[in-house]
């Protein structure tokens, strides 16, 4: 069976989903279920003590999904480490999607602070899945300090623009000895399929599912996209050519010239 192995755990799904921006908890749960995902991301924020909301966790079946807390909102390594520790204190598995995004406009990950935080968190026993720019050199550094995956961005978070970093992600995939999870910017099932056809080990999607009137249907579509891309990668894509190569025989035409 074709399983995704991250750290000491295995997963049959290669689609991870985020839980942000859904119109309701019911829509979020439907998307999670229909995606077939086994890993879902969550964020940590201050409680609004004047207007407490019901707990997100009460809607997530923890026996079915591995909770992957992110460090979104962190602007430097110190803030990211603090968020990761808080997540672990809640009793979660010590897994963390490391995000350090000081730039508010494009939410691009800070490579230096990300690497710094990754090193600290790995030493503290976390399973670290870092969101990162699609930089093959950084990917090597993150692997060397002990990250469980690398998560290069396809396009900025929430943009739905697809695998714009294609050539760089290809190099990361070629060089990595840990799973490569394409995260951020995937807006259509075809984008997910493209990443998987390139040999990515998994993809993570949030906005594309939340930003549609029918998150459950879109989650099913992404699931199929991921599965199609994975199968194509395993089968091996045929080579691309400049010139046509006939699919039908070039003999036995109904004419007499040769």
């Amino acid at each position: 069976m074709d399983l995704l192995k991250i750290a000491d755990r295995t997963f049959s799904s290669r689609l991870m989903v985020g839980t942000g921006k859904f119109s309701s908890n019911a829509a979020m749960v439907a998307a999670m279920e229909h995606s077939g995902s086994e890993i879902v991301t969550v964020a940590l924020r201050r409680v609004d003590i004047d207007n407490p909301q019901d707990s997100l966790l009460s809607h997530i079946d923890r026996s079915r999904y591995l909770l992957l807390p992110n460090t979104s909102g962190a602007r430097d390594a110190e803030e990211a480490v603090r968020l990761a520790r808080l997540a672990r204190a809640s009793g979660c598995d010590p897994w963390v999607k490391l995000e350090v995004t000081p730039d508010p406009y494009y939410l691009l990950p800070d490579p230096i602070e990300t690497l710094k935080a990754a090193e600290i968190l790995v030493k503290e026993g976390f399973v670290v899945l870092p969101y990162m720019p699609a930089d093959p050199v950084l990917a090597r550094h993150l692997e060397e300090v002990g990250c469980a995956t690398v998560m290069p961005l396809g396009a900025p978070i929430g943009t739905n623009r697809g695998v714009r970093t294609r050539d760089l992600i290809s190099i990361i995939i070629e060089q990595a000895n840990i799973p490569v999870v394409v995260d951020a910017g995937l807006g259509a099932p075809s984008h997910a399929a493209e990443a998987m056809e390139m040999g990515a080990d998994a993809v993570l999607v949030n906005t594309a599912l939340a930003d549609t009137p029918d998150p459950a249907a879109m989650a099913r579509a992404f699931r199929k996209g991921v599965e199609a891309g994975r199968e194509a990668w395993l089968a091996g894509l045929g080579p691309q050519r400049r010139q046509a190569e006939a699919s039908s025989p070039l003999t036995g035409f109904l004419r007499n010239d040769s």
Binding site: V42, L57, I157
Partner: peptide
Amino acid sequence: LELIQFVGGG
């Protein structure tokens, strides 16, 4: 004190 909770996020 900081009182923190999980919320939806990607």
